[in-house]
Amino acid sequence: MNETMRLEQLFDAFATLADTLVAGYDVLDLLQLLVENCRDLLDVDSAGILLENAAGRLEVVASTSEANTLVEMMQLDADAGPCLECFHTRAIVSVPDIDVDPSRWPDFCATALAQGIHSVYAIPLRLRETTIGTLNLMRNDRGELNQRDIRAAQALADVATIGILQERTVRDASTLRDQLQHALSSRIIIEQAKGVVAETANVSIEAAFALIREHARSNQTALRLVAQQLVTRDLRF
């Protein structure tokens, strides 16, 4: 991809993100868009987002691949890994080569390496004193992510975070925690919908999510809504 095209796409990504925020959105869809933007525009192979749940623990809420192996890896990261450190320090944590010190977070490192992931970056989702979760970028190559991509990722994450926090002030009734918990609870029905489609279309769980995502996108419907209809069998693939 040449530089001009890349800048244009990045510009589009910000514009889409901004449009979404202006038009009203579902937090989950916003975060899904964010991870897909990172994968498509930055020099990374996969991306995911973890939010703090009501119990104060980080939980995977969106990822570019719904392969259970990737999600499991990120969840291990949430218990002991770069993204937990990022969440606590509220600063970017960069691990350019997991192989250098795999004993630092043994479970996370072993799972990442088993999937061919060699470098990871955790970027905080924060606005002033509030941190709501982390954006995780994963690469199959070793080495530092270039500074420009890191800045772009942080900027995308900031826009999404501002959007989420902004909506809270618009809708005073729900606290930030309620809103984030709602996004995490939506995961339950999305996981169920993945199972429904895996069964009825006879595809893998990962492929099932791709079908659901595609349907939501082409019908401009929230993922959660599509998932809901699949689970009640009002919608069938």
Binding site: N53, R57, E59, V60, N68, V71, E72, Q75, A78, R187, I188, E191, Q192, A193, K194, G195, V196, V197, A198, E199, I205, L230, V231
Partner: peptide, 14 residues
């Protein structure tokens, strides 16, 4: 664990 719950939700859907 949140991860095991996720798998249980997927199985529930199936």
């Amino acid at each position: 664990t949140t991860f095991s719950r996720r798998l249980i939700h997927q199985a529930t859907g199936m």
